[in-house]
């Protein structure tokens, strides 16, 4: 799980162009949206694509994203449970 969290942080930094950030700057429980990393709706779509492309997880209902993409912790837990890649 720890490895997956670090992998996710690095993927987020690259995919979302989080300039000047390193994996160490993101805490596992930091909110990804709003006051945390400040991601926006386009970033949310990018995360949905990443889940499908890299982990084989299709998020059909965008409302599910609210809980899945709460933090690195919640993302990693969801991926561990549902991944098929």
């Amino acid at each position: 799980m720890e490895e997956l969290k670090i992998e996710l942080k690095n993927k987020l930094i690259t995919a979302l162009n989080l300039e000047g950030m390193t994996a160490d700057d993101i805490n596992d429980s930091d909110p990804l949206f709003g006051d945390g990393l400040g991601l926006d709706s386009i970033d949310a779509l990018e995360l949905i694509v990443m889940m499908d492309r890299d982990y084989g997880i299709k998020i059909i209902d965008p409302k599910d994203g609210k809980t899945i993409f709460l933090s690195i912790e919640t993302m990693a837990a969801y991926i561990e449970e549902h991944r098929n890649k």
């Binding site: 995919a15 386009i42 694509v49 499908d52």
Partner: peptide, 9 residues
């Protein structure tokens, strides 16, 4: 086939 929303916009 994985279009990137960040590029597409």
């Amino acid at each position: 086939f994985y279009p990137s929303p960040a590029n597409f916009v």
